[in-house]
C-alpha cells in the first residue's frame, strides 16, 4: 500500500507539470485550432531565462525564499509572454487563413529554430540551477515521506490551473476567449476583437509554460536545450486526452498521463513505461473519441 501511495504521489507530481505545460497547448488550440509545437521550446526558454535572472540578481537572498522565487517566476512569465506574442506575430499570423496543416509546419519550424537558438545562446551542455533555493524537508503524508518541494510544485500547478479556469469562466476577457474558441466569425460579429483575444492567449499560454520551466529548473535542478521536446510531446498528449481546447481537460489529462506512466513503470516495466501509457491512452480514445472532457462538435481537417 505504501508502495502504491508513493507511486501515486510520484505520478501526480509529474502529471502536475504535464498539466501546466498542456494548458498552453490547449488554450492556443482552443482559439486557433493550431498545435503550437513551439510551446515546448517556450517552456525551455522559461527555464533558461530563470537561470539567467538568478545569476544577475539573488532573488532568494533579498526577498526571502518564497517571495524571491515568486518574483522570479513572474518576471520570467512576462519575458516569455513577450516572446509568445512575437512568435504569433511572425510565424502564425501570416498563416491565419491558410490550411490548418500549414500552420503546423510553421510551428515545427519555429520549434526547431527556437531550440537551436537556445543551444547557440546557452551552449549545448546541461545547466544547473543553484541548490537549496527553497527549503526541501521531507513531509509525511499518509505514512509516506514526500519532499516539501514536490508538494509545493503540485500545489502551485493546481493553483495556477484553478486561477486560469476562474479567469476564463468568470471574466469578460475569458468570455471573449471562449466565444472566439467556439466560432471566430460569430465572435467578431458580436464585437469581440479576435486578434486581441489571440494575443491574450499567446500571453497566457507561454507564460504558464515559462512558469513550468522555472519550476522544473528549481525542482529537478538540471536543464538543457532539448528538454522542451520531451515535455512538449507529453503535454500535447495530455491536452488531447483531456479533450483538446478544454482547460479542465488539460489538467485532468496531464494528471492522468502522469499517473498512468508511473503505474505502468511501477507495476509492469520501466523500460516499457511510455509504451504502456500510450497504449492505455489509445484505449481511452477508442471509448471516448473526443477525449475525456471533449465535447461533441463537428470539425473537419
Amino acid at each position: 500500500m505504501d508502495f502504491f501511495l508513493q507511486q501515486l504521489f510520484n505520478g501526480l507530481a509529474v502529471g502536475g507539470i504535464y498539466a501546466l505545460v498542456a494548458l498552453g497547448y490547449t488554450m492556443v488550440y482552443g482559439v486557433m485550432k493550431l498545435m503550437n509545437f513551439a510551446h515546448g521550446e517556450l517552456f525551455t526558454m522559461g527555464a533558461f531565462l530563470g537561470l539567467t535572472l538568478l545569476g544577475v540578481f539573488s532573488f532568494t537572498e533579498v526577498l526571502g525564499p518564497f517571495g524571491g522565487i515568486f518574483v522570479l517566476i513572474l518576471m520570467v512569465m512576462g519575458m516569455v509572454a513577450i516572446m509568445g506574442v512575437l512568435l504569433e506575430r511572425v510565424a502564425y499570423r501570416p498563416l491565419r487563413n491558410s490550411p490548418r496543416l500549414s500552420a503546423i509546419v510553421s510551428a515545427l519550424g519555429a520549434s526547431i529554430f527556437l531550440q537551436n537558438a537556445i543551444m547557440l545562446m546557452y551552449g549545448a551542455r546541461f545547466q544547473v540551477y543553484p541548490h537549496g533555493l527553497l527549503p526541501n524537508t521531507p513531509v509525511s503524508l499518509f505514512g509516506v515521506d514526500i519532499p516539501l518541494l514536490r508538494i509545493l510544485l503540485f500545489l502551485v500547478s493546481v493553483f495556477m490551473m484553478a486561477g486560469l479556469y476562474f479567469f476564463v469562466q468568470r471574466t469578460r476577457i475569458g468570455t471573449a476567449i471562449r466565444a472566439a474558441a467556439i466560432d471566430q466569425d460569430a465572435a467578431r460579429l458580436m464585437g469581440i476583437n479576435v486578434d486581441r483575444v489571440i494575443q491574450i492567449v499567446f500571453i497566457i499560454g507561454p507564460a504558464l509554460g515559462a512558469a513550468a520551466g522555472v519550476m522544473v529548473g528549481i525542482y529537478y535542478g538540471q536543464i538543457n536545450f532539448t528538454m522542451g521536446w520531451i515535455f512538449g510531446l507529453k503535454a500535447f498528449t495530455a491536452a488531447i486526452i483531456g479533450g483538446i481546447g478544454n482547460i479542465p481537460g488539460a489538467m485532468l489529462g496531464g494528471l492522468l498521463l502522469g499517473v498512468l506512466e508511473t503505474m505502468g513503470a511501477a507495476y509492469i516495466s520501466t523500460a516499457w513505461k511510455d509504451a504502456i501509457a500510450f497504449g492505455v491512452l489509445i484505449l481511452i480514445l477508442l471509448v471516448r473519441p473526443r477525449g475525456i472532457l471533449g465535447e461533441r462538435v463537428a470539425d473537419k481537417l
Binding site: 498545435m35 500535447f236 488531447i240 516499457w272 491512452l281 473526443r290 473537419k300
Partner: peptide
C-alpha cells in the same frame, strides 16, 4: 479500430503507435 477518429485525435493515436513501435524495437 482507430480510423474513425477525427483530426487531432487520430494524430495523437498515430504518434502513440509510432512510439509504441519504437519502444518495442528498443526492448
Amino acid at each position: 479500430p482507430i480510423i474513425h477518429l477525427r483530426g487531432d485525435y487520430l494524430a495523437i493515436v498515430t504518434i502513440g503507435v509510432g512510439e509504441i513501435v519504437r519502444i518495442a524495437l528498443e526492448n
